[in-house]
Design a protein around this nucleic acid. Structure first.
Lengths: 137, 137
DNA sequence: TATCTAAAAGATAATCATTCCTATTTAAGA
DNA sequence: TCTTAAATAGGAATGATTATCTTTTAGATA
């Protein structure tokens, strides 16, 4: 995992720094699509000297270089996702929980639909589902 | 339009104030899913005495009372939508443009799909598509 | 129509996540 | 090991949003 990340950084011409590795690991370990603040808090435990500004900068540059994804939320706070494969999200209406949802059949069905049905004046590049609902206890 | 809004306010037990009407009209007139700031700027033209705090408070309460919807964006800025019917959004990757996309057939297809295919431990309540791509010039 | 009252608005201060700035440090190629 | 551009630390600045407190007002009631 860390190895994959290091390789990806190199590919993109980014330096492999302990800060970047720690921040990436934080996102992976934290699960549930952490916010920048979640990451900062988590990072502090084992890397108390990594500065807040660095976390923001690293998150931005990782998103820009496609090593992380941003997840849209109802709230105005950004959350981050280390899963890069094409997937959708389940949003819980009761809690802040967000889970990944992968479904190849669904992807295929939708992609077929838009092969026939064109949207006027718009070229589709990517389709993501926000599936809102409730997790069973 | 303004009439519909006034009735809705009454239904919800909210007072019909000039501020609320002006802010609602701003959202409708501005099209393209304005931000709070867009609204503030627009409002200033004809209602220079409506305060910034009021705009935020009104937007919040209208969303809470389902007279407006929030639109998720890549950026961490919330945008607002006066269209309440079930619809999806087209996001332009080049500009900030967001357009509504209504498609009954699509809704039906997806809803059928999830009638059969259940998601484990999750009760689906609503599904929204974020369709990313490019508008033709 | 005048009175009353809770709700709403205004004004401004406070908050707080994010960005900016600059000196210092460091990854990694020569 | 040396060099240098890139990255980080630390802290100040920003700016959107929220909170607070006072004044105003919508709308119910008499």
């Amino acid at each position: 995992m860390a190895h994959f990340f290091r390789e990806k950084l190199k590919e993109k011409g980014l330096k492999v720094t302990p800060q970047r590795v720690a921040i990436y690991e934080a996102i992976v370990n934290l699960k549930n699509h952490p916010t920048a603040e979640n990451v900062i808090e988590y990072i502090k435990l084992n890397h108390p000297n990594i500065s807040v500004g660095t976390v923001y900068k690293v998150l931005d540059s990782l998103v820009e270089n496609e090593l992380l994804k941003k997840v849209k939320t109802e709230k105005d706070i950004m959350r981050y996702d280390a899963v890069l494969s094409n997937h959708h999200h389940l949003y819980c209406i009761e809690t802040e929980r967000i889970e990944d949802y992968e479904d190849e059949n669904l992807n295929e069905m939708i992609s077929n639909y838009f092969k026939n049905k064109k949207i006027k004046n718009f070229k589709v590049q990517d389709i993501k589902l926000q599936i809102t609902g409730k997790f069973n206890k």
